[in-house]
Design a protein around this nucleic acid. Structure first.
Length: 418
DNA sequence: TCTGGGGTCCTAGGACCC
DNA sequence: TCTGGGGTCCTAGGACCC
């Protein structure tokens, strides 16, 4: 059996941890540059807030209805997430952290020690609340997809007290009858519409399709999802946890970039971020994609990109930085107000399985990269960085409604007056 | 006055080769 | 002159997730 433990509107709940007076109030959290709403708790949703709409369009409503709006406080969320995951991890022999607020647990061969999974799940909820003040829900099922569905029910349906187990055929049927395919992990708006056109509007109907006779136009993923709904594990632990095949780092700008030096600096920052991710999973980059674009909402939107190939492949930040600065002229056009820039590491290969080339020796400075990564891990991101990314990030993101970094910055630690 | 997220994977179709 | 198969690689865009 698998469990999915998921925090309730995590970013909003994280904002409430150090502001108990905000508990029970409507809260939203905004994306980079305070652009879109990326999290809304149930009180905010009840007041008409929709996720992923631009903030400026509902700012007026928020002010009128007293909805608390916060900029993304990633430092706080990352730290609270780490603490939460540590607590959750104590409750199973295996844990896989799926996203900042979700983690899967595996209870295989645990029946002797955990006879009652509902009771166990309640213990998880209580421990997480007690130790982190974050509310979580737990869904349990035979497959990862069933655990996800169960979590959805635990969160949205009343009467479950935050825990739902899907392990009984009749009960599964009752739940499936009341859910739409879009409520299932891996099925989005488009697939849901297509299924509807084929007369499938409930999860029960979906689960009864013979995957071999799936109508044309549906992919292998849906095939797997149907099997998973019937208790046949297709999405393996390793598959969900597999190394990334592409790594991206992109951002939109608070202030448009209009000169080539700033563009180079912004790209250098993204190269640094992406390379750290590549080194974490011990991948080498064979192709670097660099892009810079104006806003798609501009009158004349434009976008430029270039591909740089590396032979031998590399994850050495300095090599990628050099390649970008040598080619920046190909990307920069005078007069274009660049709004979104970024890099993608493509064609990744495993460093351990690298095929060496007699005529192209590897020039990675692995020792230097290790030192950089270790320092930044210990003392925080950007404690050391390449000069290419500059020190004056005029283009960096806007966070006008930022709350303090209560747990990661000495000067922001809450004061208690006795 | 202006403002619209970020990341990953999959797939259809084009280009090219023999 | 026109038509024909099968394979690989690449890429833009679609779809999905949080």
């Amino acid at each position: 059996m698998f469990a999915l433990v998921d925090a309730n509107s995590f970013y909003c709940s994280a904002e409430q941890v150090f502001r108990p007076e905000w508990r029970g109030k409507a809260i939203i959290v905004l994306s980079n540059n305070d652009g879109c709403i990326v999290a809304a708790n149930k009180q905010a949703i009840a007041l008409g807030i929709q996720k992923f709409q631009p903030f400026f369009k509902v700012r007026h409503l928020c002010e009128k209805a007293g909805i608390i709006a916060c900029s993304s406080n990633y430092e706080l969320y990352a730290d609270l997430s780490h603490k939460m995951m540590q607590v959750i991890g104590r409750f199973a022999p295996e844990q896989h952290i799926y996203s900042i607020d979700e983690s899967f647990l595996s209870f295989n061969d645990c029946k002797k020690h955990i006879p009652d999974l509902i009771l166990h799940a309640q213990k998880i909820r209580r421990a997480v609340w007690k130790e982190t003040r974050l509310p979580v829900c737990v869904g349990i099922g035979k497959t990862l997809t069933l655990a996800k569905v169960a979590n959805h029910v635990a969160k949205k349906w009343p009467g479950f007290n935050g825990v739902c187990v899907l392990d009984d055929e009749n009960f599964n049927k009752t739940v499936f009858e009341q859910l739409a395919p879009i409520d299932v992990w891996g099925i989005g708006r488009k697939t849901n519409e297509k299924l509807k056109q084929n007369g499938i509007s409930t999860v029960l109907q979906l689960s009864k399709i013979n995957p071999r006779f799936l109508p044309v136009g549906f992919n292998i993923e849906l095939h797997r999802t149907i099997k998973e709904l019937n208790g046949e594990a297709c999405k393996t632990w390793d598959g969900v946890r597999a190394d990334k095949v592409q790594i991206f780092s992109t951002r939109s700008m608070s202030k448009r970039i209009t000169n080539s030096d700033s563009l180079n600096q912004a790209l250098a920052k993204h190269i640094g971020i992406a390379c750290v991710k590549a080194r974490e999973q011990q991948s080498l980059c064979g192709t670097l994609m660099v892009f810079a674009a104006s806003s798609p909402f501009d009158k004349k939107p434009c976008s430029y990109k270039m591909l740089i190939h590396f032979n031998p492949p590399t994850n050495d930040t300095s090599q990628l930085l050099k390649a970008v600065s040598e080619n920046i002229k190909l990307l920069f056009k005078t007069g274009v107000p660049y709004y979104k820039v970024g890099v993608g590491l493509l064609n990744l290969s495993q460093a351990q399985q690298h095929q060496f080339d007699l005529f192209h020796p590897i020039q990675n400075n692995t020792a230097l990269m290790n030192v950089l990564d270790n320092i930044n891990q210990r003392y925080g991101n950007d404690s050391t960085f390449f000069a290419a990314q500059g020190v004056n990030e005029a283009w960096s993101m806007r966070r006008e409604l930022l709350t303090p970094q209560y747990t990661t910055k000495w000067s922001h630690i809450p004061h208690i007056f006795c």
